[in-house]
Design a protein around this nucleic acid. Structure first.
Length: 918
RNA sequence: GGGCGGAUAGCUCAGUUGGUCAGAGCGCUGCCCUUACAAGGCAGAGGUCACAGGUUCGACCCCUGUUCCGCCUACCA
């Protein structure tokens, strides 16, 4: 074995072996109670980033842990077609090839996307494999594969039949670059500084009087239908009902009162109402029965001549604005208003601009025909499920977040004006609608008029019930990508068919995801699961943090602060990356990832590797079995410690405390198993042919083998590699049992005895450190203790202590006098029963250093004693404190006093020595 | 505007129902290439737990306020 662990070849080899042996596959008839996780399907356009790495590491830890526990474990993988994102990617590629999707036409474009998917869409899957993900690849699903598409149509039709889906003309968020509608949550708000325009609106009957209206989007004024003032605003009360000459148009609009839209304390107190361009205005317009004047924009967010004309904008203005995109139109309007004296004031204004979450283009509220899910009836049971804890959300802080959003949920716009996705299963009779049917100029798609009657069906209808003809056109829109994601937990298991998979694995056990898609995905899965399966889709939702860079910034390509998990895996190994992510996954806190931390856990892997080397080197001799009570005490000690560790790791994992579990096992392996147990075993093993050595060889194997199993979910590769090299039962650690805590191994008395000895060893080393005495220098050491029990236990471990502290002679006793001649030193362990360790330094001692050390310790002791005295003299403390705390305090106080006394006399003596010398 | 979370060692973060919890990793200092490991060992230095009040016998922990910093959300035109 090499001195350094080399992950590269190990990882590839073992992953392949596991896959070949079918360990990843879950059978519906498999033994054990089912444990299932459906993967949050990564986009086919995706490449593994740290978020994926974290998300899938945590899932794999759970999966491997449960699988080893003997559960019938399924991790169902898949990918998402990612409508807009994928379409954007392929469009970019087309552009490079000198063509566009419009030139290609719908069918050929979609064909292109499938081609792209076949070529590049599997990348993320290969990357997940590199991470060690033990998914059941035989069950790999894609949101647009046949079965899932069928499920999507089924869900759509049923929702429509239940009147939970409707079509209508609404104001929606429109991305002028992607040319599609977006749902509310697909709009990201970003604080930006814009301008606030103050515009004069002259009264119709008194042009010298005017209302000043404030707006951030002056171009929309051309579509104003009214101006609102607050009913309690005395400034304007007399104007209510009067009309205004809308500047730059030949229209007159009314002044009305509205107490919802208008905030008395904000702006000028007068608000323009533009229902076609603003969500609040739309609502206000509805309240007052105002006309819903159509938008002045086209779908590229360009101002359009004929629409402006319909709004009765002056021809000269139309000429200047025609075909201008919004930002330019805004500048132009500003100029025109300025010239004509309508612009009274202009100031900077902070506001939250809505942007497309896919392409960051500023979205425009846009009036158009869309499909919606009537969401309230679906949300109610989903709220209840979480309130009643049928679904646990972990950490619980997210529950309120979820409930708040669900209670205030708005209808879900599910139609998208793109091509890549599930086309809406709605058809329209051609002959019934032919008079109003138009083709869109850009891509030639049909524009379905709002009064057209949709026929929603699982398959294309054959005959029109109204006119008997057979020609149908299909609704050109596709569904929001999240529509198919919403049914992922059951569509992937074969629904709508009643498959054995569905029966065995639904509801799934745990969902592991980031909070960024709590609303996009989790909430909708809960709604759909309850609606179509009548059961929650998962029992637990574990929500993990975001991975950020060392400065706490969200990692993104544009910021250039991305730590690439693949590069990390190359450099440090997959196990190191996985362990880092697990150890840092504290609930409710973002992960600020730094390379140093990963390096630290790479070192940990190497530590384990070298422990394995040590053990393998020592397996030469015979191994013996013996009743547990006859094993060497150090062996019994480490097994006791191991089983405590096992208990904690299991408990932490039950609570989704990946960080605790990882830190516990890390600390145990490095600082107990390696630092102490392997060192303690050395003197035992040195007696090559002894029974003790033979027994310890057995324990070495047994304990280490269990340690590897304990660690396997976190570091699957290195544990398998080592496990295969040491004596073991079974064909792979992946399918070996996860160690359960066995209480019979836990022995409090032995732990105390060994740990007391360890403290003595540490004490002797400390003196070496303080006095700069080489570890190899043999010392003669005197240990004094007032406790005969402890004395006995130290005597039992005398050889061990001497060996690990390089004490040539070691004297242990209850009441030993200091050797009269030599300068000696002593050390006392707070809380332990040792009162003094005297070390005969045979003239090596540096008196000055020693005095400083003792003086410092005396200061600490004094402080502690004062504090305890205060407590103990306080009657309230004595009366109210729990007895064990009181007892501990008293004991500590006594110990402090004793130590203080000893050290004081020690110091006195040193002064004499020093004085004598000087 | 509302909501949530954070402020603990030089850096990144843990800290279980208030009482041996002031901790880890990295970094730093000293001594060690001791046949598992220098990607290592042993030892050490380093913190008024953001600030100010309060509750309590006792507060990093609970309450109130303040100051910074994140994030989510929202109709301030």
């Amino acid at each position: 074995m090499e001195k350094f662990y080399d992950p590269k070849q190990v990882e590839r080899r073992w992953y392949q072996t596991w896959a070949e042996r079918g360990y990843f596959h879950a059978s519906v008839t498999g033994p054990g109670s089912p444990y299932a996780i459906v993967i949050p399907p990564p986009n086919i356009t995706g490449s593994l980033h740290m978020g994926h790495a974290l998300n899938n590491t945590l899932q794999d830890i759970l999966i491997r842990w449960r699988r080893m526990q003997g559960r019938n474990t399924l991790w169902l993988p898949g990918t998402d077609h990612a409508g807009i994102a994928t379409q954007n990617v392929v469009e970019k590629q087309l552009l490079a090839e000198g063509t566009t999707r419009d030139k290609l036409g719908r069918d050929r474009f979609i064909h292109k996307v499938w081609e792209w998917k076949a070529q590049s869409g599997g990348l993320i899957i290969e990357q997940l494999k590199r991470l060690g993900s033990s998914c059941d690849w035989e069950r790999l699903r894609f949101t647009m594969d046949e079965g899932l598409s069928k499920a999507v149509r089924e869900v759509f039709v049923r929702l429509y039949e239940d009147d939970l889906i409707y079509r209508g003309e609404r104001l929606i968020n429109w991305c002028p670059r992607c040319l599609t509608a977006l749902s509310d949550i697909e709009v990201e708000h970003e604080e930006t500084t814009g301008k606030m325009y103050y515009i004069r609106y002259p009264l119709a009957d008194d042009p010298n009087t005017a209302l000043i209206v404030a707006t951030t989007r002056p171009e929309t004024m051309l579509a104003d239908v009214a101006v609102a003032v607050h009913p309690e605003d005395s400034r304007f009360r007399h104007l209510t009902g009067k009309r205004i000459n809308l500047p730059l148009t030949s229209r007159q609009i009314p002044i009305i009162q509205d107490n919802i839209l208008v905030d008395l304390k904000f702006g000028t107190g007068a608000v323009k109402i533009t229902p076609a361009h603003d969500f609040n205005d739309e609502a206000a317009g509805k309240r007052h029965g105002l006309p819903l004047r159509t938008s002045i924009l086209d779908h590229h967010a360009h101002l359009l001549q004929n629409k402006l004309r319909a709004a009765r904008v002056e021809e000269s203005v139309i000429k200047e604005l025609d075909q201008l995109p919004v930002p330019k139109a805004r500048a132009k309007i500003e100029k025109i208003l300025q010239e004509r004296g309508f612009l009274v004031k202009l100031e900077d204004h902070k506001m939250a601009l809505g942007k497309c979450y896919r392409c960051k283009t500023v979205v425009e509220p846009y009036l158009s025909e869309q499909w919606f899910v009537r969401i309230k009836p679906l949300a109610e049971p989903a709220i209840k499920a979480v309130e009643e804890r049928s679904i646990r959300i972990i950490p619980e802080g997210w529950i309120n977040n979820y409930l708040g959003w669900m209670r205030d949920i708005k209808d879900w716009c599910i139609s998208r004006q793109i091509w890549w996705g599930h086309q809406i299963p709605a058809w329209y009779c051609y002959s019934c609608n032919k008079d109003s049917l138009l083709r869109r100029s850009t891509d030639g798609e049909w524009m379905i008029p709002s009064d057209a009657k949709p026929i929603v069906a699982r398959t294309k209808p054959t005959v029109c019930e109204d006119c008997g003809t057979h020609d149908f056109i299909r609704d050109p829109d596709v569904l929001d990508t999240w529509f198919s994601s919403a049914i992922w937990p059951f569509s992937t298991l074969g629904w709508p068919d009643q498959t054995p998979e569905l029966k065995t694995f639904y509801p799934t056990s745990t969902l592991v995801t980031g909070f960024d898609i709590l609303f996009f995905w989790v909430a909708r899965m809960i709604m759909m699961g309850l609606k179509f399966m009548g059961q929650v889709p998962f029992q637990d939702v574990y929500i993990h943090a975001l991975v950020r860079d060392a400065e706490g910034q969200k990692m993104s390509k544009s910021k250039g602060n991305v730590i690439d998990p693949l590069a990390v895996m190359d450099k440090y190994g997959t196990d190191a990356l996985r362990f880092t992510l697990a150890a840092m996954a504290s609930p409710g806190r973002d992960i600020k990832l730094s390379e140093e931390r990963i390096e630290g856990y790479r070192n940990f892997a190497n530590k384990l590797w070298n422990a394995a080397r040590f053990i393998l080197m020592n397996l030469e001799g015979p191994r013996a079995e013996a009743p547990w009570a006859d094993r060497p005490i150090t062996d019994r000690w480490i097994m006791s410690r191991l089983h405590r560790c096992i208990g904690e790791v299991n408990r932490s994992l039950e609570e989704y405390r990946f960080d605790e579990a990882a830190n516990t096992v890390y600390h145990f392996i490095w600082h107990e198993y390696c630092d102490w147990y392997l060192e303690l075993s050395k003197p035992v093993l040195a007696e090559k042919d002894s029974l003790k050595a033979a027994l310890t060889r057995t324990t070495l194997v047994e304990s280490f083998e269990a340690v590897l199993r304990l660690l396997h979910p976190f570091m699957p590769f290195i544990t398998e590699e080592i496990w295969q090299a040491i004596p073991h039962a079974g064909e792979s650690i992946m399918v070996a049992p996860y160690p359960p805590q066995e209480k019979t191994f836990i022995d409090e008395a032995i732990e105390q005895e060994i740990e007391g000895s360890l403290k003595v060893i540490a004490g002797i080393r400390e003196i070496r450190g303080a006095q700069a005495i080489a570890p190899s220098k043999e010392l003669s050491v005197t240990v004094a203790t007032p406790s005969s029990v402890f004395e006995q236990s130290l005597r039992n471990q005398q050889t061990l202590i001497a060996s690990l502290s390089t004490a040539g002679t070691l004297i242990i006793g209850t009441d030993i006098k200091h050797p009269a001649s030599a300068a000696t030193t002593s050390i006392v362990f707070p809380g332990g029963s040792i009162v003094e360790v005297g070390v005969d330094l045979a003239g090596l001692i540096d008196v000055g250093k020693e005095k400083a050390r003792i003086e410092k310790r005396l200061k600490e002791l004094t402080a502690q004693m004062e504090q305890d005295e205060k407590k103990l003299s306080n009657p309230d403390f004595v009366a109210k404190v729990p007895p064990d705390v009181l007892k501990k305090t008293k004991v500590r106080h006594e110990e402090c006093r004793a130590e203080h006394a000893k050290l004081t006399s020690e110091l006195q003596r040193l002064r004499t020595v020093a004085g004598g010398a000087g």
